[in-house]
């Protein structure tokens, strides 16, 4: 089946509609190796600005690996090697001249498990602006922190306990704190790696609403396990299987009228 998918892949390189919003991230012929093992095989697709793009697929299909390419988090893994062309606003992010620190300031990340630092809520959010030198004064910093917390819809809940530990919040709140922490750096893109997988449905709904409103100002790429989530929130969906990008297109099309049977099978729950 693997070879079949490969053939399909070659003939079905997704075509972006030029009338749509400008493309902010693009991947072209991207391979990812872990040691000698090929984890991602020749993946190409574009991500449009101010949209939510969902990456779906069975576990181990490589969707997280692709996500981590966009802000070069894979650099942290010694054995991992990425080839191909990934561009952010037209610039090759693997170009030696690119500063990975600057890149990650532009492309923020929210992880599967909420990972607030063992510091106060304020310090958690202030960490990014501080290291990047975004605030000129203490007042500035406070303003950035409060605005980020507001954007993450957390401010009202924590306004009077900003100096309490971030690890003392509930799971959903912790995840929103992590979102606020990412927003405080003022990125253009936010990568989310299954942000709701350890949350209850109510907390999930809150975060989904949040993403919906964030779309105005940010581009969001989300890896998700839940097909319902992808169909609810995303405009574009990419379906991965065994390291291949099987299908990429408008979410509606993918979920109602997928081109390939394997996509259909996954969406209908027959594989996964």
């Amino acid at each position: 089946m693997g070879s079949m998918i490969k053939i399909l892949n070659e003939t079905a390189i997704p075509v972006t509609n030029p009338i749509e919003k400008p493309c902010i991230l693009s991947a072209k012929n991207v391979d990812v190796f872990y040691g000698n093992k090929l984890a991602i095989n020749d993946v190409s697709f574009d991500i449009m600005e101010n949209q939510i793009t969902a990456l779906i697929g069975p576990s181990g299909c490589g969707k997280s690996s692709v996500l981590r390419c966009f802000n070069r988090m894979n650099d942290m893994i010694d054995a991992c090697k990425v080839t191909g062309d990934i561009r952010f606003a037209g610039q090759n992010i693997y170009d030696p001249k690119v500063d990975v620190v600057a890149l990650r300031a532009r492309i923020g990340m929210v992880f599967q498990k909420a990972n607030p630092f063992p510091k106060s809520i304020f310090e958690n959010v202030a960490y990014g602006p501080r290291i990047h030198g975004l605030a000129k004064s203490k007042g500035d910093l406070e303003e950035i922190v409060i605005s980020a917390l507001k954007k993450a819809g957390l401010y009202d809940e924590v306004a009077n306990r900003l100096d309490e530990s971030g690890t003392g919040l509930s799971g959903g709140q912790q995840q929103r704190l992590c979102i606020a922490r990412a927003l405080a750096v003022d990125p253009q893109v936010i990568l989310m790696d299954e942000p709701c997988s350890s949350l209850d449905p109510i907390a999930t709904a809150v975060i989904e609403d949040l993403m919906e409103s964030m779309k105005e100002n940010y581009t969001i790429v989300i890896v998700t396990h839940s097909m319902q989530q992808a169909s609810r929130i995303s405009q574009k969906t990419a379906f991965f299987h065994l390291g291949d990008l099987v299908e990429f297109g408008d979410t509606e099309t993918i979920f109602t009228n997928p081109e390939y049977e394997i996509t259909q099978n996954y969406i209908s729950g027959r594989i996964g």
Partner: peptide
């Protein structure tokens, strides 16, 4: 110290 701590920091663009 959990890997998640480090990842969070690197993800924010920390050196």
């Amino acid at each position: 110290v959990p890997k998640a701590m480090r990842e969070a920091s690197y993800g924010l663009g920390a050196t």
